[in-house]
Design a protein around this nucleic acid. Structure first.
Lengths: 204, 204
DNA sequence: CAAATATAATAAACACTGTTCAGTAAATGC
DNA sequence: GCATTTACTGAACAGTGTTTATTATATTTG
């Protein structure tokens, strides 16, 4: 029976190999330019082999998509807990913004791209995403309870904050901020300044 | 010389035919699913013919992209001028949101998609986009002058407002709001409620 | 009018893409 | 040793954007 076990391990190893290669290529050249044949070439298997381990291209990229959420959630958990919920909220925003600027490809896959959600979204319920949102929702609720920010429904407020930061990031990543380009001003700085303005308006 | 004129007119007509077919197909099935061969089939010409009138697929979709901006700018100009700049700002936000919800494919092409900007963005300066942003900037400046909204740099404030609404819309269009789904609540209503909350926080 | 030229359109090909399937070769079970 | 299962792959399918050599037509010139 040991042989069967080893075989199963081997199979998982090859699955892992595909994911690792796909991740590497994805971070090097993005989703669209990473083809099944690219991955096959990289791991020195035939393209058809990949389909023995994954149903479709999107299934691989859904896993990378989840890796991204693990990374983001780790950043959220790793940061030392700030007592004041408003300060914590501000910090969350900055962590989120920083994550996006440091990992634009992950961010794109997680929050902008259409592809790897097509079918999977239904059965998976997008658990990882829910976790991140829960972090935000909890902090917002605390802020509202302590009357630190403008009153409103916690869900609406959380959605607003998320939308705001996402808006900044996605306009930046997809290069729509050309028109808003102050002479000599670096774009990432503009994003940080905007976030600070938003946090100010939020404060009660 | 009249013959030459007619020929030139014919050429423009065929160019127009391609754009119209492309627009039709694009609005029916989106960018990715509208192929050059689709368009060729529709207008009953060979695919190669299209390349006599356009350098590449993106060039066609850049024109559709501009059509979208014309549409949006028209909506901005058509609305009866409200005297109070804060009210006008609120109205602008609603018009923008409404435009996106009514024309999600145009919106995607204009503000989310990566494709049709690849090279063109440099030489065209994205004039249409600048126009829309100018509308916003002017109103924001008035609001700031009359101290109706939280003080800040007009550009930062304008960018903030745009980012906010864009964030809402793009999360909605690219289906990332599943986690924020109140039982029985329609998503578009959530967007409107959020915008109202944001406008409230903005008010001084 | 006929020959030469310019114009417009295309069939076919190139280099890709995701995906499927029939066939092969090796390891395992009996 | 033979049958069966397992793992893999070459080749193909149907599509994509794009280019090029060729053909058919229309216009201009001798």
């Amino acid at each position: 029976m040991a042989i069967k076990d080893r075989k199963e391990r081997d199979k998982l190893d090859r699955r892992k190999l595909i994911i690792e290669s796909a991740t590497k290529l994805f971070l090097e050249q993005g989703y669209e330019k990473t083809s099944i044949r690219n991955i096959a070439d990289d791991i020195e298997y035939s393209p058809a082999t990949i389909y023995l381990y994954f149903k479709e291209k999107d299934e691989i990229f859904y896993l990378i998509h989840e890796q991204g959420f693990d990374l983001l959630n780790k950043e959220f958990t790793n940061h030392n807990q700030i007592k004041d919920p408003y300060e914590r909220l501000a910090e969350l925003g900055k962590i989120y913004l920083n994550f996006a600027l440091t990992n634009p490809d992950y961010y794109d896959l997680m929050f902008i791209m259409r592809a790897p959600l097509s079918e999977i979204k239904c059965h998976s319920k997008w658990e990882a995403g829910d976790n991140s949102f829960q972090y935000l929702l909890n902090t917002v609720t605390e802020c509202l309870d302590q009357k630190l920010i403008v009153d409103g429904d916690p869900l609406i407020v959380s959605m607003s904050i998320w939308s705001y930061v996402h808006g900044l990031i996605s306009l930046f990543i997809r290069e729509r901020l050309q028109s808003v380009n102050i002479e000599g001003e670096q774009n990432p700085n503009l994003l940080i300044q905007s976030l600070e303005y938003f946090l100010k308006t939020l404060k009660v």
